[in-house]
Amino acid sequence: METQIETPPVRPAAGDRGAKPNRFLEPTINSPASLQTTSAKLGRIADRILADAGQESTAFVLRCDVGQGGE
């Protein structure tokens, strides 16, 4: 099954001043804060993760089946 992420489930309602529409699909990296990693390095790590995520992804997802819900 190949589906795309839907559009954001909620848009800021009228009157929600200060809330800008979510532009997650075009992230920019700036102001280092919680991660003590430079933006460039963080970008490289993220790219490495994305490359791995594209490998055998369907097989990985199917293999991750615990067979039941938990408590």
């Binding site: 992230p27 993760i49 994305l50 995520a53 992804s57």
Partner: peptide
């Protein structure tokens, strides 16, 4: 991380993340 894949990413790749 999921959104960095952009629109071309498959559901399976997103789920793997």
């Amino acid at each position: 991380l999921i959104d960095r894949q952009g629109k071309g990413g498959t559901w399976a790749a997103r789920k793997k993340i």
